[in-house]
Amino acid sequence: MLHVQNRELVVPGQLLAEGGYVIRQGAFREGSRIYSSVVGLADLHGQEIRVIPLQGRYIPKRGDVVIGVVIDTHYSGWILDLNSPYVGNLFVSDLLRRKVDLMREDISKYLDVGDVLVAQVKDVDELMRVQLEAGEPGLGRVEGGKLVEISPAKIPRVIGRKGSMLNTLQSVSGCRLKVGQNGRVMIWGDDQRMVNAVVEALLMIEREAHTSGLTDRVRAMLEKLKSEGGE
């Protein structure tokens, strides 16, 4: 038996359902009762229940694409801030995909403190030690562009269903985006005005992530800014 409606805003401890439902996220079970553990939107699909959180820090998961900032270099690799309670570790071999003679080469020429990197989470162990890899195409050090941070909980909205929001953002603005699951977004564009418009759009998505019709509003906002022309 359900005690909430689909898309209802729920709070921690709120009774969601009783019975044999499957919990996917943001909820916990006590006996036959299922409660929300976070502030979020109830998402009910058949026998599956989850609460889509509206806040919260990024917790690394294997396979996630993240945007990290190098905070330290050691002899065989780097430590990256992931906008998370847990830092990421990247070995030089997981960046270059080849053997490196650490006795001869100074690896700081590949990546240095402050550099920004698109990486994939290769592994997370039970102590939440995070291994990254960045050798595949589309991963690696980034140059130029603008880095924006929003709440990681809102990233699924930035991407949208089957990438619909991200497509809208890129096609209307003419900018290129790279989205990290950890709340960081890189924006590249020749038109400074449209880069700023994308930032505005991202902040709008962050503010209104839990509302419907958002893609249309984002598109309208970007198109309006675009038609207002250059300075």
Binding site: V69, G114, V116, G144
Partner: peptide, 10 residues
């Protein structure tokens, strides 16, 4: 504060 090179350059 952690400040990335990208943000600084921007």
């Amino acid at each position: 504060e952690i400040v990335s090179t990208v943000k600084r350059d921007y």
